[in-house]
C-alpha cells in the first residue's frame, strides 16, 4: 500500500515553546488561513472599515476643534502647554484601537461561534482552537493597525504630531489592539447570550469617557486616580500621549508590560475556553 497522504499536504509543524501551555493538538500552525478568510470576506464588508476609521476623526473634530476652542491650551505629559486637540488625539487613538479590537473579538466572534458555527467547520479540518484564537485576534489586530495608521495620518495633517517618537505610536496601537482583542475573545468565550454584551458596553463606554481620554488624571481625587490607574485604557492613553508629544521616559515600559500580560492571559484563556466549548 502506498502512503495515503494527500499530495501537497504538509505535516503539522513543531509547536513553539510558548504555545505548549495551550491545549494539546490545538495548533496546526495555520492561523494565517483565518486571516486569508477574513481578508476575503472583508471585500464585501468594507463599509465597516470606513465607519471604524471615521469615528475617532469625528470625535477629534467635534471635541478637539470645537470644544478645544473653549478650552484653549493645557499642560501635556512633559509639562509644556499643548492644544486641547493635541491632548485628546492620542486618547482617541488609544480608544479607537480598543473599540475596533473589542468589537471584532466580541460581537463578531460570538456570532461566528454560536450562530454561523464557523469554528465548528474549521475544527473539522486540521485547524485547532489555537489557530482560531490566534487567527481571529490577528485579524482584529490588522484592522486596528489600519485604523491607527489612518488616524495617525489625520493627526499629522492637523499638525498634532510634534515628535518623531510619534512613529512608535503605530506599533504601540497594535500592542494595545492585540491586548484588547485577546481579552475580548477570552470574555466572549464566557458569554451565553446577546444580553451579556451589555456588560461589554458597560465596561468599554465608561473607560472611554473617564480613563483620561478627554482630561488629565489630576482632575480626580487621589482614590479615584488609583482606580483609573488600574484601567487598561488609561495605560494605553498614557503610552500614546507620551509618544505623540515626545515626552518619552522609561516608565512607558511599565505600560507596555501591562499589555503583554493582558495578551498572554487573553490568548491562554481564549484557546482553553474554545477547546472546552467546541471540543466537547
Amino acid at each position: 500500500m502506498t502512503s495515503p497522504t494527500t499530495p501537497g499536504m504538509p505535516a503539522p509543524p513543531q509547536v513553539p515553546p510558548i504555545l505548549r501551555m495551550l491545549p494539546a493538538g490545538g495548533y496546526a500552525g495555520r492561523s494565517r488561513m483565518l486571516l486569508l478568510r477574513s481578508a476575503t470576506a472583508s471585500r464585501r464588508t468594507w463599509m465597516a472599515f470606513v465607519s471604524g476609521f471615521f469615528e475617532p476623526v469625528f470625535y477629534l473634530i467635534a471635541m478637539g476643534q470645537g470644544l478645544g476652542s473653549l478650552v484653549g491650551e493645557l499642560p501635556g505629559p512633559g509639562g509644556e502647554m499643548i492644544s486641547y486637540a493635541a491632548f485628546i488625539a492620542p486618547g482617541l487613538l488609544a480608544a479607537s484601537a480598543m473599540n475596533g479590537a473589542v468589537f471584532d473579538s466580541t460581537y463578531n466572534v460570538f456570532f461566528k461561534l454560536k450562530y454561523a458555527r464557523l469554528y465548528d467547520a474549521m475544527l473539522a479540518t486540521p485547524l485547532g482552537p489555537v489557530d482560531i484564537a490566534l487567527g481571529e485576534i490577528g485579524w482584529a489586530l490588522i484592522r486596528g493597525g489600519l485604523y491607527a495608521t489612518g488616524f495617525l495620518s489625520v493627526m499629522a495633517a492637523f499638525g498634532l504630531l510634534t515628535s518623531p517618537w510619534a512613529l512608535l505610536a503605530l506599533p504601540a496601537a497594535l500592542v494595545v489592539a492585540f491586548a484588547f482583542a485577546a481579552i475580548g475573545m477570552a470574555a466572549t468565550s464566557f458569554m451565553r447570550s446577546w444580553q451579556d454584551f451589555d456588560l461589554v458596553t458597560l465596561a468599554i463606554l465608561p473607560m472611554f469617557l473617564f480613563a483620561t481620554t478627554f482630561y488629565p488624571l489630576s482632575v480626580y481625587p487621589r482614590w479615584l486616580q488609583l482606580v483609573v490607574g488600574c484601567l487598561p485604557l488609561f495605560h494605553a492613553v498614557e503610552l500614546m500621549r507620551a509618544l505623540t508629544t515626545g515626552a518619552v521616559h522609561l516608565g512607558l515600559l511599565g505600560h507596555l508590560a501591562y499589555f503583554l500580560v493582558m495578551i498572554a492571559l487573553g490568548i491562554t484563556v481564549a484557546a482553553r475556553r474554545l477547546d472546552v466549548l467546541l471540543l466537547k
Partner: peptide, 9 residues
C-alpha cells in the same frame, strides 16, 4: 478557503 485550512496550495 476550506481547502486552505488543510494546508493545500
Amino acid at each position: 478557503i476550506y481547502g486552505r485550512y488543510f494546508g493545500l496550495s
